[in-house]
């Protein structure tokens, strides 16, 4: 019969050390799963399809309000772009913050193309020595593409999305080749 060698010490940490008949030591490490989920719980937890359906319904319930929020955010990006071009330097930071939010959420709410274009804009801005070095036309084309993708009830096809993203990527590559590092390398 296996027996516990160190009951007093290992009982504190939920660790069991047993010696089998063949002398091999069998160690059961302390279980966070047991502590948090109760005895008998195992990992990975079984993925219950009913739970998954509930989660998908929860997203659907939020979809309408997200649609409105997304359109508002893209309009705000256009306004911020105008302000930035008019000399308000901090407006480019607002554009980045909005793009960052959209790249994280749009895909969850059935706006993957908008999310991918937004991600492309973020990656362009993150590649710059600082946000003030951003090119106005490059930023505007990304925001216009997001506007076009998000304003219709249905996003453009995958073919159109790929062509759009490829065009934006070529533009970004050419622009970055000509972008010289600024005196202050800190990101904005």
């Amino acid at each position: 019969m296996p027996h516990s060698q160190y009951p007093s010490d290992h009982a504190q940490v939920g660790m069991q050390v047993n010696s089998g008949a063949d002398g091999v030591e069998v160690v059961q490490p302390p279980s966070i799963v047991t502590r948090k989920l109760g005895p008998g719980a195992v990992l990975p937890m079984r993925l219950d399809p009913r739970v998954l359906q509930r989660m998908e319904r929860a997203i659907e319930k939020m979809a309408d309000s997200y649609e409105k929020s997304l359109k508002t955010e893209i309009r705000q990006m256009l306004l911020s772009h105008d302000e930035w071009q008019a000399g308000k330097q901090e407006a480019i930071h607002a554009i980045y913050a909005l793009a960052h939010d959209i790249r994280g959420l749009a895909g969850t709410f059935s706006r993957p193309v908008t999310g991918r274009i937004s991600n492309a804009l973020c990656q362009y801005l993150e590649a710059l020595p600082n946000l003030d070095a951003a090119d106005g036309a490059v930023v505007r084309l990304h925001v216009d593409a997001m506007f076009a993708a998000a304003m219709d009830a249905q996003e453009p096809s995958e073919e159109v999305a790929k062509a759009t993203l490829a065009g934006l990527e070529r533009l970004v590559t050419r622009t970055l080749e000509h972008c010289r590092p600024a005196a202050d390398p800190a990101h904005g």
Binding site: L47, L52, M55, E56, L105, T108, G115
Partner: peptide
């Protein structure tokens, strides 16, 4: 992100 329900569920388990 973007968050996918199934990946989120699995992440908690993992």
């Amino acid at each position: 992100k973007p968050l996918v329900p199934e990946a989120f569920y699995k992440a908690i388990s993992e």
